[in-house]
């Protein structure tokens, strides 16, 4: 990914930067046609598409974060939504309950996520393979149980936190979808930059060595505990960052947003893109998040088939593992 300023890359960057403009142009065009000619164009609402794009952006963030543990160090994390949940509830509760500003709540959420990543990571350091996966799964499920039950802390049954206030910057409230778009874009760029630099650094090479052969890595002088803990903390922090963003984006959050299938959904993105590849995670997340939104009942499929999207994700997991374990990215696993 040592990209240069080629015309293609500049064009891609411009398109990414101008997505909200295109979307609002669609809306303006539909409005113009319908008010001047009385014809209603069957175009989707640009604002709605923009919202889906933002949602996909959150998944890109999460997939990049999960990829650090699953892809770089090769440990299967089945409870990534747990950190997403921690970030969401930390930021959500701080903002809705204590009136803390987003710009303080978000870093606190990230720090809290990283702490929990370490807390979960330290006892599981010596576990590998299935047992690690099962502990991560149990940990995330326990968190869901806690937010469902501790009403005194969370505020509502099933973990509902309502009316999380919008973010303000210089006195301007950021609640429009294009605000969210640039907001998540900045977070993604920051995350991808950090992850990419980590991957290319000594740390990243240590992670790869751990993935390939733990014992060999250890005998080469790599401190397994330290590097694994670092991976857990960074990955969890990114998950919590996504959670902090979603709290103000969704305004109301509930435990449903962070359940086990959410972890699997994110895992599915990483697997589809090819574990270990940052670019793959981004592409996988973009594809599956938009596919998931399209297949949500009521868009193409009738609403009673809304659950069918998970069926399709399941098939994707099975087929990818069978025929292309390296994912869609070009690198062969």
């Amino acid at each position: 990914m040592r990209d240069k300023l080629t015309p293609k890359n500049i064009a891609i960057s411009l398109v990414i930067l101008l997505v909200p403009v295109f979307m609002y142009l669609i809306d303006a065009f539909t409005l113009y046609i319908s008010s001047n000619y009385g014809v209603f164009l069957p175009l989707p609402s640009g604002d709605y598409i923009l919202r889906i794009v933002v949602q996909a952006g959150v998944y890109i963030l999460l997939a990049v974060g999960l990829n650090i543990v699953c892809g770089f160090t090769g440990l299967l994390d089945l409870g990534y939504a747990g950190f997403y949940l921690i970030g969401g509830y930390t930021a959500g509760l701080l903002m809705a309950r204590l009136g803390v500003s987003y710009w303080i709540a978000l870093p606190l959420a990230v720090i809290n996520g990283a702490l929990w990543g370490l807390l979960r990571g330290i006892p599981t350091l010596r576990l590998t393979g299935d047992y690690f996966a099962i502990v991560t799964f149990g940990f995330a499920e326990l968190l869901v149980q806690v937010v469902k039950n501790e009403i005194w802390l969370i505020g509502g049954p099933n973990g509902f936190v309502n009316n999380i206030p919008p973010v303000t910057i210089f006195g301007i409230e950021l609640f429009q979808n294009w605000h969210h778009y640039y907001h998540i874009l900045i977070l993604i760029l920051l995350t991808v930059f950090i992850t990419y630099r980590l991957k290319e650094s000594r740390v990243g090479r240590a992670w790869t060595a751990i993935r390939e052969d733990e014992q060999a890595a250890e005998s080469m002088g790599i401190n397994l505990s330290r590097y694994k803990s670092l991976a857990f903390a960074v990955s969890a922090a990114i998950g919590a960052l996504g959670g902090g963003f979603i709290a103000q984006f969704q305004v109301n959050i509930s435990s449903k947003l962070f359940d086990f299938w959410e972890s699997i959904f994110i895992l599915c993105m990483v697997v589809l893109g090819g574990t270990g590849s940052i670019r793959g995670s981004i592409i996988g997340a973009a594809i599956l998040a938009s596919l998931g939104e399209l297949l949500r009942g009521g868009n193409i499929l009738p609403s009673e088939f809304g659950g069918a999207r998970y069926l399709i994700f399941g098939i994707i997991l099975v087929v990818i593992m069978r025929f292309r374990p390296g994912g869609l990215s070009l690198k062969k696993a």
Binding site: L267, V271, L311, F313, I315, L317, M321
Partner: peptide, 16 residues
Amino acid sequence: LSALITAIGISLVLQN
């Protein structure tokens, strides 16, 4: 882990 991920996939398919 490939087999484990496949098992999760099958579980998703059957449940839905």
